[in-house]
């Protein structure tokens, strides 16, 4: 979880990730940040985020992202 927060803070330190639950739908994170975020997550957690995980709900909040990462890790 801490590693995920580190990645997010590097991407945009001004966002209140703890309370933000609308990161994608609310257009809080822009598309370039999202790309960078996904690349980082794949690198740091050594996973592949397949297209079926590429849904707004999986990235709207830190919890959602963390749940997704764990689910992918379980699958693999």
């Amino acid at each position: 979880m801490d590693e995920l927060m580190d990645i997010l803070m590097e991407i945009d330190p001004d966002i209140d990730y703890a309370n933000e639950t609308n990161l994608i739908d609310g257009k809080v994170l822009d598309s370039m940040s999202i790309l960078a975020l996904i690349t980082e997550i794949c690198d740091v957690f050594d996973i592949e985020i397949g297209p079926k995980w590429m849904r707004n709900e999986n990235f709207n909040s830190v919890e959602a992202m963390w749940n997704m990462i764990q689910a992918i890790q379980e699958e693999e």
Binding site: S31, I34, L35, A36, I38, T39, D43, I49, M54
Partner: peptide
């Protein structure tokens, strides 16, 4: 365009390699 072109290109292997 974002969903089907931008992310498809940006998330592809060679793009991620380029990024790294």
């Amino acid at each position: 365009f974002k969903k089907y072109i931008y992310y498809t290109i940006g998330m592809s292997n060679w793009s991620r390699k380029l990024a790294t």
